[in-house]
Computed example of a mutant assay.
Amino acid sequence: MRIRRRTASIAATLSFAAACIGSAHAIEKPEDLTVQKLPAWHPHEVFVVDISMPSMTDARVYLYDADAKKLLGQIDAGFAPGFAISPDHKTSFVSTTYFARGSHGTRTDVVELTDNATLDHTGEIVIPPKHGQHVPSPYNTTFSADGKRLYVTNITPAASVTVIDVASKKVLSEIDMAACVLAFPSGNDRFTGLCESGKALTVTLDANGKETKRVMSDAFIDVDKDPAYINASPYQGAYLFTTFHGMVRTADFRGDKPVFGKPWSLLTDAERAEGWRPGGLQQTAVQAKLHRYYVAMHKGEDGSHKDPGTEVWVYDLQTKKRIARWDLSQQKIDPIASIQVSEDDKPLFYGITGTSDLVVMDARTGKLQHVEKQVGNTSSLLVNP
């Protein structure tokens, strides 16, 4: 009896399987694969660069639409990438490193091009295997003002800059930077590196991308008493450098000699005594149309310069006076390590928390718009072209 039941059960199972297979064959159709284009670029798109500390050979760049409150896609970014967007917003450039065996083997450094309409990989430029591998900065991969040249920072630990012609996708030169790092562009033919002495080295290029002149400035940063953050904010052709203790100074590298503005303070004496100071990884942002300067602030001490901001302080750059103070905890927002602001008539403020949550706020009022949870693993750089 048990044998008959078992035989009947097996027969029923096989009959059911055969029916399923037959049905599957009957409805199976070939798929038509297409690539959907992204919506047209608008100023509320923000790129989030994630170095991905848990898996550093697999960094990512995420594209987020703050109006739609939607993640649009991602760009693979290799190991410790630099990231820049062409002035016409059409193409993303990632300077990065790959190893033949994932985390080891032969090293190849490239600049990879991505079409921002589809996020398709459209080409690459092989560069000297010296690309600086560090937490992403706005100035380790940068464009000249006209978008014709790309500058990539190298550290071996010797410092240099690779100059690339964007149209031909050719390396034009490698500029020895005499231990000065990064590339702050000024105009179409020059860039500046920061030196450990607190000075700045400005290099001017000829039509072929070769060095024609270099100028070393006097020290404009006191690196012993009050160092400055390297992530300066561009404003009216110059750069705003903010120090660990909350002083701000402009640096204009466009002329034959650099011009440095008079330092001014973000803090009153009482606020400084309370321990308030800037902090984070991308600590400041400018909204040029409103002439506003946004700074992530926290209470800390010497050595807390990378601590995220519990508040955002907003300044009028014309009067150099604070006009707003946003306590993030009042809106149940976690401390923010990196900030950015859009450049349009209805500007948005962006922030990245320690858990890679993307915070979107009204840049005029500080009112919370949205929090997109965990955009990446260890995201640290916001790029809003």
Rank of each mutant, 00 (worst) to 15 (best):
A18C: 02
K262P: 08
K332A: 10
K199V: 01
H42K: 08
E301G: 14
I336K: 04
F220A: 04
S379A: 15
T365Y: 11
E31M: 13
S186F: 09
V215P: 10
V171F: 04
V161Y: 01
F220S: 01
F79G: 03
D165Q: 01
I323F: 02
F220V: 08
I10Q: 14
A183T: 03
A251Q: 10
V181W: 03
A363M: 09
R254Y: 07
A288I: 13
C195D: 06
T319K: 05
Y62M: 08
M177H: 00
L328Q: 00
M361D: 10
W326S: 04
F143E: 02
F244M: 06
S95R: 03
N116S: 05
S52A: 12
C180K: 02
E28F: 15
N377S: 13
D67S: 05
D146P: 03
F349E: 10
S197R: 12
A100E: 00
A17R: 14
N231K: 11
L382G: 11
G309W: 11
F16L: 15
E372N: 14
Q282N: 08
I85M: 06
A270W: 15
W276D: 08
T250A: 02
Q74D: 14
E211I: 12
A207R: 13
R272I: 13
I75V: 04
T156N: 13
L368N: 06
F83M: 02
R2P: 12
S95P: 07
P308F: 08
V166N: 00
M53Y: 12
A117W: 09
E343D: 07
Y139F: 01
V341A: 00
A77M: 03
V171P: 14
